[in-house]
Design a protein around this nucleic acid. Structure first.
Lengths: 120, 120
DNA sequence: CTAATTGTCAACCATATAGTTGAATGTTAA
DNA sequence: TTAACATTCAACTATATGGTTGACAATTAG
């Protein structure tokens, strides 16, 4: 008796925490642009910062936010940090959004119906 | 010459502004829960607030954020405000995310390959 | 060894967020 | 007409955000 498990498999962060972090990370255009850059391949912090009109420090902070959301990984090689895109967490966000797909496909469907019946 | 158009079709908010608003709106679990409620049908503000352990005012503010992002519409009928889900803007966010799908489908693909070749 | 490079840390600032309480507005019901 | 109801507005608090500058630690190059 009283054998309820102590390790509750709390995945450290539950789904809501994770979605909070991911959506928050995506809610900034500079961070989205950083992800777009990383989609072209891994890159050093300085190179990532170069296209933006803000300080290296600001980019460093943005990368920390992305890292916390699991969207960026980092390999430290001497003094240079190589950052890489980790898109997997976006799948969670995408799935969450996809659950609402039927609510916006309706309009499209009626447009399709309209087009399909236009020959009448 | 010098006939460049003056009305640049600035849709008042450009795509980045819109994504900022949408992702920010989604980056809060209470607001996501509100959208989930509204997915079941339109609802009055008071009814929306009832399941949450926060003040009506807090919910009122969350609804304002969702409205600003275009995710909620409101029909005022006397003293009661009827809120409804407007999922369409989610499509933009979904499309943005979908552009990264190939970066996480890789893993899934190799799993599919593995399964498909398991008979060898 | 010294100097330049890479990147973070620390402190600071202005603004935004999420929440509160209390008052105000408008609407419906008794 | 008065009282209850449905919401927002206003003011306030605590914390987070995005940015800055300057210092620091570590690595590499001259």
């Amino acid at each position: 008796m009283n054998v309820k498990p102590k390790t509750v498999t709390t995945t450290t962060t539950n789904r809501d925490d994770q979605l909070d972090l991911i959506f928050h990370a995506l809610a900034n255009r500079t961070r989205r642009a950083l992800l777009a850059l990383l989609a072209k391949g891994p890159s050093r912090v300085t190179d990532l910062a170069e296209p933006f009109g803000v300080s290296l420090n600001a980019i460093s902070k943005h990368l920390a936010v992305l890292e916390k959301a699991g969207l960026v990984s980092r390999r430290i090689d001497g003094r240079v940090h190589h950052c890489a895109l980790v898109a997997d967490p976006m799948a969670s966000a995408g799935e969450w959004i996809a659950a609402y797909e039927r609510f916006w496909s309706a309009r499209l469907d009626s447009f399709v119906d309209y087009v399909e019946n236009e020959m009448d």
